[in-house]
Design a protein around this nucleic acid. Sequence first.
DNA 1: CGTTTCTTTGATCCTTTTCAAACGGTGTGG
DNA 2: CCACACCGTTTGAAAAGGATCAAAGAAACG
Lengths: 256, 256
Amino acid sequence: MKQSTVISFESIRVACRHCTLSALCLPMGLAAEDVERLDEIVKRTRPLHRGDMLFRDGDHFRSLYVVKTGSFKTFAPSGEGGEQVLSFHLPGELLGLDAIDQGEHACSASALETSAVCEIPFARLEELTALIPSLQHHMYRLLSKEIGHDTDLLVLLGKKNAEERLAAFLLDFSKRLHKRGLSATDFHLSMSRHEIGNYLGLAVETISRLFTRFQEDGLVRVERKHIELLNLQGLENLIASSHLGRRQPPQRQQQT
Amino acid sequence: MKQSTVISFESIRVACRHCTLSALCLPMGLAAEDVERLDEIVKRTRPLHRGDMLFRDGDHFRSLYVVKTGSFKTFAPSGEGGEQVLSFHLPGELLGLDAIDQGEHACSASALETSAVCEIPFARLEELTALIPSLQHHMYRLLSKEIGHDTDLLVLLGKKNAEERLAAFLLDFSKRLHKRGLSATDFHLSMSRHEIGNYLGLAVETISRLFTRFQEDGLVRVERKHIELLNLQGLENLIASSHLGRRQPPQRQQQT
DNA sequence: CGTTTCTTTGATCCTTTTCAAACGGTGTGG
DNA sequence: CCACACCGTTTGAAAAGGATCAAAGAAACG
């Protein structure tokens, strides 16, 4: 049930028919026959290896992608060769939504480990959503959800200190894995410390030090990329209990 | 042509019929008859004053809003009464997209000055987009564009220093005003230093000091909320020329 | 098995925050 | 219409949280 490491070729094939289902449909319940139609437009693609690019920023936009197995990161250039990691994507999660507007990808996506995706030609999907109102609603929700994720990260980068950022990152990861039937307290980080730091707006060294500190405090057990969350509540507390004494000017906001 | 301060009641009425047009349609060219149908579902609302809330986070989601006149900020709670300002909205810009997913608003929106909005009942809009493919495409683009904005802000908060953030903020504001036919170099900031700082993830004092410094450097002329950009190129340079010597580990990324 | 990359740890530096205080504009009530 | 109180802004001085620099240890890789 909870094995995530070894997956046979056969199970990948099977999963393929359902990856769009889990990402696009399961969370909100779409009629079986509509899922079938959606499944028909999905293309299979060959697996990617660590470092392989799924798309690059500036590439012509053609398709959305659903992670089938493995994981990805997306990142945007930030001047002078620098990059900002925007998100990490686990199986069942969608990639490429930001490209719809400009017709070309606004960020790049690369595999963090050996991974596979489903490709969903957007033009076909768009036709389909026009015919199936529930699928259209679905797409709106997916896009809106993406905005919500970005908002969360904005709050993280704008208002949280290093400790809070890493704690939030670990808990978020934990929740997403759990949602997919994997352990919420014992998992493998497919990205490097550098990538985590980049994502959280912190230096590699800071990440390393925090992992050490969290371990000393009995919150986690870290061994290379293997993470064990020993005290979920403790991590939650790190996030919530912050800025207790910070002056926050009362913003008088009368009801309209 | 360039007057933004005094607007007669009559011109607001007229603008109302076209606010959805400018926000939802103009940038991408929608058929006139479809604009007409869209216009029919738009509701008029009474004006809001500084501090008035358009919606609060947690409110039931019913409609999207287009700013007709004035300006708004949106902000999300960030633990212990703190807030993160997520965006400022000028006339023609859309509010509320992040609420589609959860069915309730994920952030709050308040007026920065006396303002008016168009209300677009989302259920009605959704029906309409199912009938008009170009409008549906349009909605996808709008949602996607919102993700793009968030991405920009993420890069700002994750990778830029204080100076770069404020320069980027001023230039972004300038561009958006210019797009609406207003001066790109001479404008009024409707938000306080505090709100700017919150948005950029900086302390009020830092904003104040930077304004002073920018003025000393001849980049801008600041007088209270009135801003004059004296050297656009200089501001651009502040953004681009950064981190020249920063070590950025080469991330080998082979083509797929 | 050597080379490279990733991670960890220590020491120092620096940007921005925090604390403190004064100034200026605005609005309200007398 | 003025006095007073309040909020937003500015400026200075001190403190702190991370970044940067430096270097060694540990894995991964070819």
